[in-house]
């Protein structure tokens, strides 16, 4: 709300002063930059629809001659789409929901309470953000394997429930910033009315944290969805692969086809499987499609929320 109000105030004198030319220039830059941002999406869509004769046809640059979803059928099959989709969904949605709750609780504790060792603990949160996963990956893997958690969802869900997991520290910091920006009066009146600390948090502060929760949720889902480093460690069998992992193998299969084709050709050099790339792109589109749909639905609230999370220290 405040942001919008500021906006109108700010644009008033500027709009008068700005000439038509500078407006045009502004849009030109924005549009050309937007092209760079949309380019991967366009590329993926266009490539995934192309057939062999389109690739050979020099007149075809972006739009294939006919609509053919054959690559999608192939990729859908080879990705084991529904299985991989379920694995991806459980890990990213589960971890994201758990991270929202746990990081909100912890962030609230840091934002509203002062206790002995406060600075040290806050420092440790920052420290956690900086430790590269590579440094602790070996002991962590052993720990989870001792517990028998390999090939289960637990290595993703349990750390998330404790406010850790993928970039958990960052989410805690976002919540700290957000709760610091809320007025104290709300809690004080709740406390005077006799609500305990947890009741106050649950029924007063948590419902207000919508914007921060949305931002954390979206970040967490996106990062978990695209992550292959941890799944590669903890999902060892293909039944548990998530979508990006399956996409990786899709490539491996194409490579294998390539080398087989080379053998058949008696060692003649083939630079690529004619449609291998296009199949890959079909797989890539299927992999990111759920995210694109989610983002398409949430982006309006998301960009507004991000401004309201106080991420920028307002």
């Amino acid at each position: 709300m405040l942001g919008e109000w500021k906006e109108t105030v700010r644009m008033f004198p500027m709009r008068k002063a700005r000439s038509f030319g500078s407006h045009l220039f502004h849009y030109a830059i924005l549009l050309s930059l937007s092209f760079v941002f949309v380019y991967p999406m366009l590329y993926i869509v266009s490539q995934s629809l192309m057939q062999v004769n389109d690739i050979a046809d020099a007149t075809v640059q972006w739009i294939p001659k006919e609509l053919n979803f054959e690559h999608f059928r192939f990729a859908f099959d080879r990705l084991h789409f529904w299985r991989s989709f379920m694995n991806s969904t459980v890990t990213s949605l589960g971890a994201a929901l758990l991270q929202i709750i746990s990081c909100a609780i912890v962030g609230y504790g840091f934002a509203r309470y002062r206790f002995p060792g406060y600075n040290v603990l806050l420092g440790l949160v920052l420290f956690t953000f900086l430790v590269p996963p590579q440094t602790i990956v070996v002991p962590l893997y052993m720990f989870f394997s001792d517990l028998g958690w390999i090939n289960t969802y637990l290595p993703f869900l349990v750390p998330s429930a404790f406010g850790h997991g993928l970039r958990g520290a960052l989410f805690v910091l976002i919540f700290i910033q957000f709760f610091r920006g809320l007025p104290y009066q709300l809690e004080e009146s709740a406390r005077i009315d006799g609500a305990g600390a947890f009741r106050t948090f649950r029924s007063i502060m948590l419902p207000l944290a919508g914007p921060a929760m949305l931002v954390v949720f979206l970040f967490s889902v996106v990062w978990h969805w695209n992550d292959v480093f941890e799944p590669n460690l903890y999902f060892m069998v293909s039944e548990h692969y998530n979508l990006p992992q399956s996409l990786m193998i899709l490539n491996a299969q194409a490579e294998q086809q390539l080398s087989e084709a080379q053998k058949m050709m008696g060692g003649a050099m083939l630079t690529s499987v004619p449609t291998g790339y296009n199949r890959n792109m079909a797989g890539a589109l299927l992999t990111i499609l759920p995210l694109v749909i989610l983002y398409g639905y949430a982006q309006r609230y998301f960009v507004e929320s991000l401004e309201r999370t106080g991420i920028a220290g307002e």
Binding site: N226, P244, M248, A284
Partner: peptide, 20 residues
């Protein structure tokens, strides 16, 4: 435009970026 500028965070990361 803002939504467009955030698009690569979703698309161009991880395996999909590797493919590209």
């Amino acid at each position: 435009f803002r939504s467009i500028f955030f698009l690569p965070v979703i698309i161009a990361s991880g395996t999909v970026l590797q493919k590209l």
